[in-house]
Design a protein around this nucleic acid. Structure first.
Lengths: 204, 204
DNA sequence: CATTTTTTTAAACAAGCGTTTAAAATCCTT
DNA sequence: AAGGATTTTAAACGCTTGTTTAAAAAAATG
């Protein structure tokens, strides 16, 4: 009789949760095994080592990370529309996965890094034709002529930082979690307006 | 004969460097002692425990973190001028201390948190009169009427995230560290223009 | 049902952790 | 220079870490 979730899957799912919220150094193999309700030795039985298991979790996280970007910018809409849709989707996605940006940034900064093929993820985004589209829009004077490096950076700054800084700003402003999230929804609209007005100056 | 740097100072300075770049869990007492060129036991002799030493380092980091904000916004200039000066200073400051934003955000997110008086730092900023000044400017129609929570969030997002994401974006774009930093200087101007145009709509 | 293969277990491993100890070295005061 | 306080040291403490082992349990195979 096949179980609906195998031991391997239980461990992977527990690792996903624990690694994402605590990072590689912030948790132990035993903690992951307990979260999965299984014996410690099984972590190594199925995944050979903590590092190997982490690598799997991290790569899956990177897939999640670029998925919405690829989906939105690969679609057939105007650039302005795509921008607004992307910001909306990104805020919605991060509401469900608020630990993701910190997780990825931190683990990439780790000394004994995560040893994955980073370029592959950049290519995924590049393949949507986003950069060519921006370049063309800039030549036509439709989009502000700024470095193509700055465009994703502006968007990511204003989408990711607000969720990364939640704990700090909650405490600084003395807000509850819900109050902060409500403010985030208001903030999203500001970000959307600000970025589009800046990137597409004649659009209003 | 007094040494120019005491053992205690050497350990504190080593701890500052190591904690900031690796975080509380990312380093060991022995690593700090080695960086200071001293015996492990001295860490506990002078600071009682790793946690206690960390607390000192973290609070000093928070002081650094809010210092430029307090200095700039406590000065007697127009709000627009202050904004532009602050962004300039913040980029310059973070060029020297690029690990600071990640450090503070991460350690605040830690489960067994850093147990410091966060409110004190908010008060420091509030005491500059920044929020009253913004409120007044909004009533006069000089500044865009947005939540007073969103203003620091917009500024911090666009100042802090670009240095936090350096490793990731360098690898994604295949840039060298110098190339990224050069781009950051261009980006700073964009951020400055974008934020000021958005916050003070009639200012151009 | 017997045998082989796969999965799970408890226990142990060496290494590293934060911290403590007690003796040695150094400093300061008289 | 002697004596007492302070600083530094090497070694050890108990505990946790990632990982391995070897036996037990379960599942699959014929």
């Amino acid at each position: 009789m096949k179980k609906d979730t195998t031991t391997e899957e239980k461990i992977r799912e527990a690792a996903r949760q624990v690694f994402r919220s605590k990072g590689f150094y912030g948790c132990t193999s035993r903690e992951i095994a307990n979260a999965a309700g299984e014996n410690v030795a099984l972590v190594n039985y199925y995944f050979r080592s903590k590092s190997q298991l982490f690598k799997i979790i991290f790569e899956a996280a990177m897939d999640d990370f670029v998925l919405s970007m690829v989906e939105v910018f690969g679609s057939k809409k105007s650039l302005v529309e795509k921008m607004r849709i992307f910001i909306d989707l990104e805020y919605a996605f991060l509401a469900k996965h608020p630990e993701l940006p910190s997780f990825i940034l931190n683990e990439m900064n780790r000394e004994d890094g995560c040893n994955i093929d980073h370029q592959k993820y950049f290519l995924k985004v590049a393949e949507t034709g986003l950069f060519e589209e921006c370049f063309k829009a800039q030549e036509e004077g439709y989009m502000r002529s700024i470095s193509l490096n700055s465009i994703p950076l502006l968007i990511m700054s204003n989408c990711h930082y607000p969720v990364m800084a939640k704990t700090m700003l909650m405490q600084l402003h003395g807000m509850t979690s819900k109050e902060y999230d409500d403010n985030l929804n208001i903030h999203k609209k500001l970000v959307s307006d600000m970025l589009i007005n800046f990137l597409f100056p004649q659009s209003n």
